[in-house]
Design a protein around this nucleic acid. Sequence first.
DNA 1: TATACAAACGACCGATCGTTCGTATAGTTT
DNA 2: AAACTATACGAACGATCGGTCGTTTGTATA
Lengths: 210, 210
Amino acid sequence: MTQDGRRLRGLRSREVILEQAVGLASVEGLDGLSLGRLAAATGTSKSGFFAHWRDKEQLQLDAVEWAARQWKEHVVAPAMSAPAGVRRLFALHEARLRFYGDGVLPGGCFFFTVQAEFDDRPGAVHDRVARAMGEWQEFIQRLVAQAKELGELVEGADPAQLAYEIDALGEMVIIHSRLHDGPAALAHARRAVLQRLRALCPEPALLPED
Amino acid sequence: MTQDGRRLRGLRSREVILEQAVGLASVEGLDGLSLGRLAAATGTSKSGFFAHWRDKEQLQLDAVEWAARQWKEHVVAPAMSAPAGVRRLFALHEARLRFYGDGVLPGGCFFFTVQAEFDDRPGAVHDRVARAMGEWQEFIQRLVAQAKELGELVEGADPAQLAYEIDALGEMVIIHSRLHDGPAALAHARRAVLQRLRALCPEPALLPED
DNA sequence: TATACAAACGACCGATCGTTCGTATAGTTT
DNA sequence: AAACTATACGAACGATCGGTCGTTTGTATA
């Protein structure tokens, strides 16, 4: 039987641990998060972790996977239900800002913290995070290209350039909102991308005015 | 006599230690940096640190101070030697990108790493970093306001909004260049701010075309 | 019912963390 | 020369780090 109660129970607690790990890592980072604190947060013993993962790095890699799923669910999926083109592009940006504003993760953004932590440290986690970031950037670029094909962005718009701008303006909300100007950062990030898209869109009426 | 050779020697080694600390912290963060590794990097013993600083936090605070001085020297000062107005604003952005591109710090940017590390962790270091960031943001806003007074930026330009955009587009170079598209990030950041300023400037000829 | 196995635990390991203490040395003041 | 002081050190501290080991508990299979 595949109906193995032990495996089911294991998967469930595995999920609980990963959710806690992603939340804590969004605050203190994947390495800054210690197994002891993670054990305390989940109400388990740290030795129990090694029944699920060979070592801390394996847990970190699974946490990245979990966070990527969460990101797709909360940010990518809502955008995909908006009409293709420039509106979908802006919906993606707004979904990200909502994710931050709603405080889904205590630290704001798992990937921001982990990128800052591992951008200089080679290893499996670095590579996995870099891959996730590449896919994210590629996804934004595809949406830009699609908007161009639909004639909703001028021909001169460079997908890589615009994707960099959208991502940078959105991601820096984390730092600015937490240690400088609070919710104003969200407004700045929203307004910046909105005006940029409107300026590049032959039919600005597709987007809100402000 | 104020000519105390002991104090001079102390100040010199203090400076050496802080320089190393800022460099290492730009990679692993101010807390991620351990006193043991710092001692190994400076060729001293870690117990010797406590002749200069009461505890690790005092060293961290002085490291922030040292990094702020370095930033003013490498980024703010060069911008101030450009003519006031929109050209000075862009010179500031370019000086920052040069600071990153030249690899002055092994981790790229001390403040980026430390902001990401302390944005969620209350304490003296958090407050000191937040103050530095506030001053930096205020400085950009002053340059924007000055450019408006000189008629080099349209009246509708919001200093806080534009300062956010310039800072975000510049700062995210660190992450993008290190774990995604390398030097292309520098080009994207430069181009984004340049085009943004040109679009807001009644006299675009003040700025390079590309 | 007996056997096999996954899940979880407590106890413990060596290494490293920030920090303290006593001491030796070099340079200044008396 | 004696007294003083800033600098720097080695040894050691308790705490915590990631990780190992042996064991117990609960479930599924034979």
